Amino acid sequence: MTYYIYIIYSEQYDKYYVGYSQNPWERLIKHNTVPFNTFTSKYRPWCLRAVFKVGELKTEAIKLEKFIKKQKSRILLEKLIDSNFILTGKLAQLVRVPHMRN
């Protein structure tokens, strides 16, 4: 199975969230509907802003998600969302994918 890194955004609260999943489109639905008291449940609704293909290894997806989160940088997240931003360094292995699906 392929793993992805995704970035979602809450316009109402002006917050970003980064996660990994095998299906970020389905995961977005869960972020917006699951009734548990979580970080993302407090800032609904969320919209998908960027999706990146990581590869077949879950450990690699986790490692990259943690790397992005440890930066604690809104600027980095906004650069990642920008389709013109060139991924370098540890992020160079990410492959931007269209996030709109029917």
Score class of each variant (00 low, 15 high):
residue 73 S to A: 06
residue 47 C to D: 11
residue 55 G to C: 06
residue 96 R to M: 04
residue 61 A to K: 08
residue 13 Y to M: 06
residue 15 K to H: 13
residue 70 K to I: 00
residue 20 Y to H: 15
residue 97 V to C: 14
residue 30 K to G: 05
residue 36 F to D: 08
residue 41 S to P: 05
residue 93 Q to S: 14
residue 80 L to F: 05
residue 82 D to W: 02
residue 23 N to L: 06
residue 77 L to V: 08
residue 3 Y to V: 01
residue 81 I to F: 03
residue 77 L to Y: 06
residue 40 T to N: 06
residue 86 I to L: 07
residue 2 T to M: 14
residue 66 K to T: 01
residue 43 Y to M: 00
residue 94 L to F: 07
residue 4 Y to G: 04
residue 20 Y to C: 13
residue 48 L to K: 11
residue 72 K to W: 01
residue 57 L to G: 01
residue 52 F to G: 01
residue 68 I to R: 04
residue 45 P to T: 03
residue 23 N to F: 10
residue 37 N to S: 12
residue 75 I to Q: 14
residue 7 I to A: 11
residue 96 R to K: 08
residue 5 I to Q: 02
residue 80 L to I: 05
residue 20 Y to K: 14
residue 65 E to V: 03
residue 86 I to V: 12
residue 8 I to S: 12
residue 64 L to D: 04
residue 59 T to H: 08
residue 53 K to H: 10
residue 6 Y to E: 05
residue 45 P to Q: 02
residue 68 I to L: 10
residue 21 S to M: 14
residue 79 K to G: 00
residue 68 I to N: 06
residue 52 F to C: 04
residue 54 V to T: 03
residue 21 S to P: 15
residue 66 K to P: 00
residue 4 Y to P: 07
residue 77 L to I: 13
residue 62 I to P: 06
residue 65 E to M: 06
residue 78 E to S: 09
residue 83 S to L: 00
residue 21 S to T: 14
residue 41 S to W: 04
residue 65 E to Y: 05
residue 32 N to Y: 07
residue 102 N to W: 13
residue 101 R to T: 04
residue 10 S to H: 09
residue 51 V to A: 02
residue 37 N to M: 05
residue 57 L to T: 02
residue 23 N to D: 15
residue 102 N to H: 10
residue 101 R to G: 03
residue 68 I to V: 12
residue 19 G to T: 13
residue 95 V to C: 02
residue 11 E to Q: 15
residue 1 M to H: 11
residue 53 K to D: 03
residue 69 K to R: 13
residue 36 F to K: 09
residue 67 F to K: 01
residue 23 N to T: 10
residue 17 Y to Q: 13
residue 77 L to P: 02
residue 69 K to L: 14
residue 100 M to R: 10
residue 95 V to D: 02
residue 61 A to S: 08
residue 53 K to Y: 11
residue 35 P to L: 09
residue 86 I to M: 05
residue 14 D to K: 15
residue 78 E to I: 00
residue 93 Q to H: 02
residue 49 R to K: 10
residue 61 A to E: 10
residue 59 T to L: 04
residue 88 T to H: 06
residue 92 A to N: 10
residue 95 V to Y: 01
residue 54 V to L: 06
residue 94 L to D: 04
residue 92 A to D: 08
residue 61 A to G: 04
residue 97 V to E: 15
residue 67 F to A: 00
residue 84 N to Y: 09
residue 16 Y to A: 10
residue 85 F to A: 02
residue 22 Q to E: 15
residue 33 T to R: 13
residue 96 R to W: 10
residue 71 Q to L: 08
residue 77 L to G: 03
residue 62 I to H: 05
residue 41 S to Y: 08
residue 4 Y to T: 07
residue 100 M to K: 14
residue 13 Y to G: 00
residue 39 F to R: 13
residue 20 Y to E: 15
residue 55 G to E: 04
residue 41 S to Q: 11
residue 79 K to Y: 03
residue 75 I to V: 14
residue 52 F to Q: 06
residue 99 H to Y: 09
residue 99 H to I: 00
residue 4 Y to F: 14
residue 45 P to S: 01
residue 62 I to C: 01
residue 6 Y to D: 06
residue 26 E to P: 00
residue 29 I to C: 03
residue 68 I to S: 05
residue 9 Y to M: 11
residue 12 Q to L: 15
residue 28 L to S: 12
residue 96 R to Q: 03
residue 67 F to M: 00
residue 87 L to G: 05
residue 15 K to S: 09
residue 5 I to K: 04
residue 91 L to T: 08
residue 96 R to F: 08
residue 59 T to E: 10
residue 51 V to H: 09
residue 92 A to K: 14
